[in-house]
Amino acid sequence: MNVSCTVNGRAQVAEGVWEGESLLYMLREHLGLYGSKNACEQGECGSCSVYLGGTLVCACLVLAGQAQGKEIITVEGLARGHGLHAVQDAFVEAGAVQCGFCTPGLVVATHDLLQRIPSPSDAQIREALAGNICRCTGYAKIIDAVNLAAGRSRS
């Protein structure tokens, strides 16, 4: 089947999609957007976090066909032009990136958190990011990055 949707502001048609494919697979293998990651494909790690119709979801748990007619924003769509979004820059600066496989999902989830709560408390950060597993950092520098991004957005 073909799936039409808007991805990062561009109308896209994924052609020849097998009905059992997830939105994650469709983004990666049909649309060439490999930023959303395939770490668990069961909604347990958050590495494939994207916006679907403005809502933060795991792309692996969305059936490709369910994205028909929807607007999707992936990690590749956060920054304008060649620069970095403030959240992305904060992750680089705070040292919140090691292997980086969880990073795109965390960047999108942090983006969502700061849209909802511009100055989150430590507890709010932790609860909001509890669905994003990082195996490398132990999370300390991720929390630093969220606070850094929040501080910069305020100023």
């Binding site: 957007l33 490999y34 930023g35 959303s36 990651k37 395939n38 992936t74 990690v75 590749e76 920054a79 970095l84 992305q88 820059d89 992750f91 680089v92 600066e93 040292g95 990136v97 980086g100 496989f101 990073t103 795109p104 960047v107």
Partner: peptide, 17 residues
């Protein structure tokens, strides 16, 4: 600052998968 982090935060770093 890690040189590879920029590509990683953009989702543009090609992993083996």
């Amino acid at each position: 600052r890690r040189p590879d982090a920029v590509q990683k935060v953009r989702g543009d770093f090609p992993y083996s998968s």
